[in-house]
């Protein structure tokens, strides 16, 4: 079947797109960035929840923010500034969505996995309210969704594919994030806090502040991911704008073993896989949730892989155990 897909003229661009073009890839690349960030900022387990929140709400919130810029401020802004302002609004929106759970977590220890998950439903409800209600396209023949955004805010694409400016931006951001975590004092502190909150207290770091900053930063990154999806691919706010993006981010970060520099590769891999699934889905007329099942299975597979890797390590370590550890 894949061969047929490649040869059929109608689908001729599919493999190429599968490799690099799908916008999911860049969404993922950003998603991973925010995820790793959150992981560095909080302890491993809670970081995942933070990232999850960042993913979905951040993506939606920021998409809404930039959409607002595009829809309502476009007439008043010089066209050249429109795209940067929309992107900035997206990032700011993402950070803002992240702020409340971050503060609740840092000050009161409210479990952010739960708070962010529950807020996801709120975000989706709010978005539905907007595109079913006040923001609905009057010319849309009753179809729920906003009007198409002006072309001035679309992210430029390359080579007639769906690869848009977001991809190089995402790769550059991966490098920048790596630098931030590895080379700056703030990054060092965030890593220490992530690995051992007790050590951070011992060293006198301002843990609450680092947590909030890290979570807001990850929210901003996720905001960019959502904005990329909006301005680069869909060009309107509609149903399923960011669906699957958050979960995909978790899977990617896990596949990359939380190594920032490995994330673009992992994102590319998952992106290619999802494109394949996309094709299959069309062929077999599967519902969109099939992607969720695939991601769930992939996550289980990755967990199994981690178990196997860890156990090999454990055996090696047992072999090196010093007498001092035995007694």
């Amino acid at each position: 079947m894949p061969l047929r897909l490649v040869l059929e003229p109608r689908q001729a661009t599919a493999p190429l797109r599968a490799l690099i073009s799908l916008a999911t890839t860049l969404g993922l690349a950003w998603a991973f960035g925010s995820l790793v960030f959150a992981l560095a900022g909080a302890d491993g387990v809670s970081g995942i929840g933070a990232a999850w929140r960042a993913m979905l709400q951040g993506a939606l919130g920021s998409a809404l923010a930039s959409c607002w810029v595009a829809l309502f401020m476009a007439p008043g802004l010089p066209p050249r500034l429109l795209l940067p302002v929309a992107l900035a609004a997206g990032a700011a929106g993402g950070a803002a969505w992240a702020f409340a759970p971050a503060l609740l977590k840092a000050r009161l220890g409210v479990n952010e996995i739960l708070s962010t998950l529950l807020l996801n439903y709120v975000a989706v409800l709010f978005m539905e309210h907007l595109y079913y209600g006040p923001w609905r396209d009057p010319a849309g023949l009753g179809f729920p969704g906003t009007a198409e955004l002006p072309e001035a805010v679309w992210l430029p694409t390359f080579f007639e594919t769906r690869v848009h400016l977001g991809l190089p931006l995402a790769i550059a951001l991966a490098g920048a994030l790596w630098w931030l975590l590895a080379r700056t004092r703030w990054g060092f502190r965030a890593r220490v806090l992530g690995l051992s909150p007790k050590a951070a207290a011992y060293a006198g770091f301002r843990s609450a502040r680092i947590t909030v900053t890290a979570m807001c930063l990850s929210g901003a990154l996720a905001g960019l991911a959502g904005t990329g999806e909006l301005l680069g691919v869909q060009h309107r706010v509609q149903d399923g704008l960011a669906s699957g993006l958050g979960f995909a981010g978790i899977v990617v970060a896990f596949l990359a073993r939380l190594n920032l520099l490995a994330v673009p590769l992992a994102a590319l891999f998952l992106g290619a896989l999802l494109v394949g699934a996309d094709q299959l889905q069309t062929e077999l007329r599967l519902p969109g949730t099939a992607v969720l099942a695939l991601e769930g299975a992939l996550l289980f597979g990755a967990l199994l892989g981690e178990f196997l890797a860890a156990n090999r390590l454990r055996l090696v370590r047992r072999g090196r155990k010093e007498p001092g550890h035995v007694g």
Binding site: V192, S196, A201
Partner: peptide, 9 residues
């Protein structure tokens, strides 16, 4: 192992 040092650094 937890406060004075971070084992994974």
């Amino acid at each position: 192992h937890g406060a004075a040092t971070v084992p994974d650094l």
